[in-house]
Design a protein around this nucleic acid. Structure first.
Ligand code: MN
Ligand code: MN
Ligand code: MN
Ligand code: MN
Lengths: 143, 143
DNA sequence: CTTGATTTATAGCCCTGGCTACATTTCTGT
DNA sequence: ACAGAAATGTAGCCAGGGCTATAAATCAAG
């Protein structure tokens, strides 16, 4: 009895966790890309010190994150100079910013206070799939 | 112009990221606690092999996670025997399961397909604050 | 009761993302 | 032009969460 094709709140399948881990491994990249883009707009360029301050980490931590961005082809920089996003990095930042905004908007739409929405969205955004994002946009458009 | 007390989609503040990192550091603990609780109900006890299979990791990884649970007072176990949650661990598992269910229900309520909701919820749940959870429950109750 | 399969433990490796401490470079003001 | 301040780089530490390979214990049959 009851349809057994999809699981409906039953036993979690391993793929769920694998997927959540994959999403998490992108989170740092996404947040730094977005932040570098923010700083580029505000200040013309993103300096390591500013990135670190905004991310709430020390500068060696920011340096490591930028190194990973560079390694993955999302950013470029020369020693003692600012960090700049590649085209791919800028595209990622744009997607991430849009997703962040949609998540916040949806949270607010269902009754979450704005400030709480902003805080929670910072973690939530990295786990919103394209399908879910589209559903959020549709909900916001129709409500 | 415009009230500057709360930030309304402006520059992210470092605390947001600090908060997201704190939430993430609880994620593994939460998922394992819930899984151990699942297995205890299904099979009477949670064996390392079963925990690993369900979490989609190898058994040494599961052993490490259980070691952390024990270290934090959330579980107990004797060598070569099953893993059991402490009272505190069981309480955590209960909260986590409830939150997971509410998140899935909210996603479905705004139009996300059930299966996608289950997958996304596995990552999202760890970043839903109490305030947001309450808002979700209120939305579900009133809609 | 012994043996082979299964389960669990342990060692040791990798990567990530935090940190502090210290070296080096760049910038700024006189 | 230089000195001191500020920014950046780098080394090295730690914890967490993955993994493989191997050892040891437990379990299931015969
Ligand atoms: Mn984020
Ligand atoms: Mn964001
Ligand atoms: Mn989860
Ligand atoms: Mn869950």
């Amino acid at each position: 009895m009851s349809d057994n094709t999809a699981d409906e709140g039953q036993v979690p399948t391993p793929e769920r966790f694998t997927q959540a881990r994959a999403a998490q491994s992108m989170a740092v990249l996404e947040d730094y890309a977005e932040m570098i883009d923010d700083l580029a707009q505000e200040m013309g360029e993103a300096r390591i010190t500013d990135i670190a301050a905004r991310m709430g980490v020390t500068h060696p931590t920011a340096t490591k994150a930028v190194a990973r961005l560079k390694r993955e082809g999302l950013a470029v920089s020369r020693p003692y100079r600012g960090v700049f996003l590649t085209e791919e990095g800028a595209a990622l930042a744009a997607r991430v910013r849009m997703r962040h905004r949609v998540v916040v908007d949806l949270l607010v739409a269902v009754g979450v206070p704005q400030e709480t929405a902003e805080i929670d969205a910072e973690g939530l955004e990295h786990h919103v799939s394209d399908v879910t994002l589209k559903a959020f946009e549709a909900f916001l458009a129709r409500r």
